[in-house]
């Protein structure tokens, strides 16, 4: 009875109905590699944790960051603990208008963002804020990219339907 048992065959996954094979096993060293497609997909349960107020702020049309109550260091991108004195920082609202510190126009990108190319990335600076903020700059012609964009006054705008990503805020020339 045992030799009659067969695992049921399925038609999912990789199927190659005929795999060429030599009679002489010595020939196997001349074999070309078998290359197959292996899909891999994951849904993470990602917590924004102590950064969450930033995303709640974006959903409410506010660009938030943090400031150290001990040493006064003011961050353009929030971090709950000051990198200079280790104290817990307080939240504050950044001004909606800032300036382009540097920029690029991406004509290629990571797979996730390829459909959005060309897109413009900027680091935003504000007077009296010690660090910068990474964002997209829109409503500007990517073909016009030039160094005079540095120093340009830009204004924060917010997506109405928040996606809970840092791109819920974006900048336009002010």
């Amino acid at each position: 009875m045992a030799d009659k048992f067969r695992l049921p065959e399925t038609d999912d996954g990789t199927i190659l109905f005929n795999v060429p094979f030599p009679k002489d096993l010595k020939e196997l060293k001349n074999m070309k590699p078998i290359i197959i497609k292996q899909p891999y997909q994951i849904d993470y349960i990602h917590s924004y944790a102590q950064d969450s107020p930033f995303f709640a702020g974006l959903a409410n049309g506010k660009l938030l960051s943090t400031k150290c109550p001990e040493c006064g260091y003011t961050y353009g991108t929030p971090r709950l603990h000051c990198m200079y004195c280790g104290s817990e920082c307080d939240w504050f609202e950044l001004p909606s208008e800032g300036f382009v510190h540097c920029f690029t126009v991406c004509h290629f990108g990571s797979e996730e963002f390829l459909p959005e190319t060309p897109f413009t990335l900027i680091l935003v600076e504000w007077p009296k804020v010690d660090t910068l903020f990474l964002a997209r700059l829109v409503n500007i012609d990517p073909a016009d990219a030039n160094l005079d964009w540095i120093g340009m006054k830009v204004k924060a705008q917010f997506k109405r339907n928040s996606k809970f990503k840092p791109t819920d805020v974006y900048f336009v020339p002010a």
Partner: peptide, 12 residues
């Protein structure tokens, strides 16, 4: 949290 989702691309 802050950089990759904006258009993460090292050349950029």
């Amino acid at each position: 949290n802050f950089d990759y989702p904006v258009g993460g691309f090292y050349s950029g």
